[in-house]
């Protein structure tokens, strides 16, 4: 690693973050944030990801903002008892009290979307109270016919009129600690991240950007880190499918909505089920550093 560029790339450790979408007590997964299918209990998946090398976890309560519900506290507490990596929680957090409740339950950071869009000064208030690094701004981006990306709320349903790059800059100036950037068109589809969008945002702000939405194979992660300049990468389906392949999902979910997936176990063909260790080894071979024994050895040697 002689030249400065690749050395720099090695210096910075990219975070690999499983994202778990939660509806009530269950882990769910949709496509483009819609058509949710029940996959099991989030805390069981979380434990598996923790043990296999996840750098952080994100829990997103994806119906909370529609029904004003916030039943996450119980799941957060169960998770924080045995999982010692950072946990970010998002979905329906509208007030300082909401944020305080999830932090007290054991979350380390919160992801805010709607409340920040409605009142950007809320970011400042929350950052002053809990520290910038605790406050992530979640942006659900959809490309419009004018070629620009706009921020949406409510799982990509509500148009806000905020152009994504400008909004990311504004959020950072109000004291956001990180940007969680979900490309709704790619989400759950397995054809890769939108590296173009991620790069635009990552270069516009000087806070970390977490790319989310679209991972179908390890190559997709390498691309959004290399071309998209993502500081961290979020993924769901690839890991969830791997979990299901290796575990019996316990419990009766018959009263809990769409369980077709659990019955058929037919995985979406565009998505290659892969575990975290395999992903991290792949990234290392692609010249990308993350928390991994191979990276550690290399850095010790330099």
């Amino acid at each position: 690693m002689a030249d400065g560029q690749s050395f720099k790339q090695i210096m910075k450790n990219i975070r690999i973050i499983p994202r778990l979408d939660i509806k009530g007590p269950n882990l769910v997964k949709g496509i483009h944030l819609e058509g949710l299918r029940v996959l099991g209990k989030p805390e069981q998946y979380a434990k598996y990801y923790y043990e296999t090398g996840a750098d952080e976890l994100i829990y997103m309560d994806i119906v909370a903002s529609l029904y004003g519900r916030n039943s996450l506290l119980n799941i957060i507490e169960k998770t924080a008892r045995e999982i010692f990596i950072p946990l970010t929680v998002g979905g329906g957090l509208r007030t300082i009290a909401d944020i305080n409740n999830v932090l007290r339950a054991g979350a380390d950071k919160v992801a805010i979307n709607t409340a920040a869009i409605r009142n950007p000064a809320f970011i400042k208030e929350a950052a002053n109270r809990f520290g910038s690094s605790t406050i992530l701004i979640s942006i659900e981006a959809i490309k419009q016919s004018d070629g620009l990306y706009y921020a949406f709320t409510d799982n990509g349903r509500e148009y806000t009129g905020k152009e994504v790059v400008a909004w990311a800059k504004e959020a950072a100036s109000f004291g956001a600690g990180e940007i969680l950037l979900t490309c709704v068109d790619n989400e759950g589809a397995g054809f890769g991240y939108d590296s173009n969008l991620v790069r635009q945002v990552s270069e516009a702000v000087n806070i970390p950007v977490i790319a989310c939405g679209g991972a179908g194979k390890p190559e997709d992660l390498a691309k959004v880190i290399g071309e998209g300049k993502a500081d961290a990468v979020c993924l769901s389906s690839m890991l969830h499918y791997d979990y299901i392949e290796h575990h019996k999902v316990e419990g009766d979910f018959s009263a809990e909505g769409n369980i077709e997936f659990l019955k058929s176990r037919e995985i979406f063909k565009k998505i290659k089920s892969t575990d975290l260790k395999t992903i991290k080894t792949f990234l290392f071979d692609a010249g990308i550093c993350c928390r991994h024994e191979l990276s550690a050895n290399l850095m010790r040697a330099i």
């Binding site: 400065g4 450790n13 990219i14 975070r15 600690g177 000087n206 806070i207 993350c290 550690a296």
Partner: peptide, 14 residues
């Protein structure tokens, strides 16, 4: 080298 340093540092480091 005038490279942008992202602050805060968030993540794993040795």
């Amino acid at each position: 080298k005038e490279n942008v340093i992202k602050v805060p540092q968030v993540g794993w480091n040795q």
